[in-house]
Nucleic acid binder design. Structure first.
Lengths: 120, 120
DNA sequence: CACCTGGTTCGACGTATGTCAAAATACAAG
DNA sequence: CTTGTATTTTGACATACGTCGAACCAGGTG
């Protein structure tokens, strides 16, 4: 899905969407954007799905490979959509199957927000 | 598999929590625990409060210092409680005021989950 | 075409969540 | 002990969220 109206931080050049959490208090807008990503990982099922995609060989996985998380298939699809909308995953249809892969730059940005905060 | 159970020599109550997200699919229990922390940062107001505490000089802030986030004071208190319950903040009363500070080890653990995943 | 399988969307339902005003608690100072 | 300030708790409310089954869409295969 080339529905890229989400966030402008998938681009090469990777401006981190936000400063480290302990650099200065986040503004309302920064908090709004960043919270969306944390929120996307704030559900156990979504976190398992995300981890399943991220750890799958080749960096991508088809839905059928990761659907075994204890909820119905419509629910899986719903959560994958949420992760996509948060900018954490992208999807592509190839023949019968739909493949999901992680957006590495966004993940790195989130990590920096926390690790820089942690070590400062 | 890094069999390092010795990791947290800092605070009690701090579990190593989880492997990096791309090492292997998280189990249900791991996802449950980890999602709680992400969820705590998944609200804009909470994220601003957390950032305000983390960036405040001395590593701690009294509630009166960070209450200006656009919601009522009971709501601020409610969110601070959530952050405390998620293990991200701790609080201490000193005289009239209540001071909050970040739990650094937990923050570092969350960062590792993401950054290791990002760079692997 | 009809049919099957993989995946998404729709509609509904119960629960969780964010919010506030009002009441309650904790402490300091008269 | 009474008043005043800082913070939390309570109770209520609207909205958001996670979940499911049913219906729907997309491709491959006969």
């Amino acid at each position: 899905m080339s529905n890229v109206k989400v966030l402008p931080l998938l681009e090469p050049g990777v401006e981190p969407c936000c400063p480290p959490l302990n650099e200065r208090p986040l503004t309302a807008e920064e908090a709004e954007r960043t919270a969306k990503m944390f929120k996307a990982l704030g559900d156990p099922v979504r976190l398992r799905l995300f981890s399943a995609v991220a750890s799958h060989q080749g960096g991508e996985a088809c839905v059928c490979d990761i659907s075994d998380v204890g909820v119905s298939q419509p629910t899986v699809s719903h959560h994958l959509k949420k992760l996509r909308e948060a900018g954490l995953l992208s999807s592509e249809r190839r023949g019968t199957w739909v493949y999901y892969r992680v957006e590495p730059s966004v993940l790195a940005a989130m990590g920096q927000i926390l690790t820089k905060a942690a070590t400062a």
